[in-house]
């Protein structure tokens, strides 16, 4: 055991274009790594949890990727956008509330001022709050590599705990997007923490609901973590909801179905299985109700 190592890089690049960033990655051929805000990566690197690299390629200064934009179909978040910017963004507050809520509980202000949603997603923690929020919204991500640029569903990027299919030595997560909530849609996020020790959620849950005039649920997405190796899209529970009425009874049922289909684990320093299950039972209906309120309210 050591308390010593410092693990430094030699070069720190802040490329202004994606092409430039890819060129650096190509040049270093696996010895350079993409970094966003670095609030997780650099701390972990210092602790010796990642293999040392020769260069860091900071993608938060890329022109056009440090902003939130919107087009007809999507709200698009560049990889340089910090959690703080997302929390404050009026469009996201209105059309993607659960992302605002979930990014707002990450770390403290200093971390949110520097850390990015793209970094949170690429880190692929089983319960990264920003990731859980975006997953509930049905988010997609854009990955740039030497093979070109492609969009993929967010949930397809998760490989394992802390492991993403995005190769952070050769590829760049350049943008994230989601379809804004429309009339009759609402979203919400909640998480439960414990006051001691690990700064990670006991349970983090995001939902997106669409209801019609007859109070029937026409679309539903529920994301949860940590319930397995990767952020989880609770499809069985979503199926229970779609086509049924938006009632608390249904939501309680959805929570039970969600629990039937995952195996929550006791993690010694986080929570017992029973406690986690209880939190899902308690909070999934609470936030589904909150999403319904929002779907019915003026602000979507």
């Amino acid at each position: 055991m050591t308390t010593a190592s410092t693990n430094r890089w030699e070069h720190y690049y802040t490329p202004a274009t994606v092409a430039e960033a890819l060129e650096i990655l190509r040049r270093y051929d696996g010895r350079a790594r993409v970094v966003g805000g670095g609030t997780d990566l650099l701390v972990e690197t210092r602790r010796g949890l990642h293999r040392p690299v020769e260069a860091m390629v900071d993608v938060t200064h890329i022109e056009g990727l440090d902003v939130i934009t919107s087009d007809e179909d999507n709200i698009v978040i560049g990889c340089g956008v910090t959690h703080s910017r997302i929390v404050r963004d009026a469009r996201i507050l209105k059309y993607g509330m659960c992302l605002s809520e979930s990014c707002g509980v990450i770390g403290g202000p200093q971390v949110r001022n520097v850390g990015t949603l793209a970094g949170n997603v690429a880190h692929a923690l089983p319960a990264g709050d920003g990731t859980i929020g975006l997953l509930a919204l049905g988010g997609e991500i854009e990955v740039a590599s030497d093979d070109g640029i492609r969009w993929m569903p967010l949930q397809d990027s998760f490989k394992g705990p802390g492991k993403s299919f995005i190769d952070r030595y050769r590829q760049i997560l350049t943008r994230l997007r989601f379809r804004p909530t429309a009339a009759g849609e609402g979203s919400a996020h909640h998480r439960v923490m414990r006051p001691q020790g690990l700064c990670l959620p006991i349970i983090s849950v995001g939902v997106r609901l669409q209801i019609d005039d007859a109070n029937t649920i026409t679309d539903a997405r529920i994301s949860m973590g940590p319930v397995g190796p990767v952020p989880y899209l609770a499809e069985p529970a979503m199926e229970v909801l779609v086509g049924g009425p938006a009632t608390n009874e249904q939501f309680v049922r959805a929570a039970e179905v969600a629990l039937e289909n995952v195996e929550l684990r006791t993690s010694k320093y986080r929570a017992s299985r029973e406690y986690r299950e209880q939190m899902v039972r308690t909070y999934l209906p609470v936030i589904l109700n909150r999403a319904v309120e929002r779907a019915n309210g003026a602000a979507s």
């Binding site: 670095g38 701390v43 403290g108 001022n113």
Partner: peptide, 21 residues
């Protein structure tokens, strides 16, 4: 947070903020 400085007016933890950033 005791290492907090302002970068472009925003509080950041300078201990994990690369100088070149």
């Amino acid at each position: 947070g005791i290492c907090t400085v302002l970068v472009d007016g925003t509080p950041v933890s300078s201990c994990v903020y690369p100088a070149f950033k």
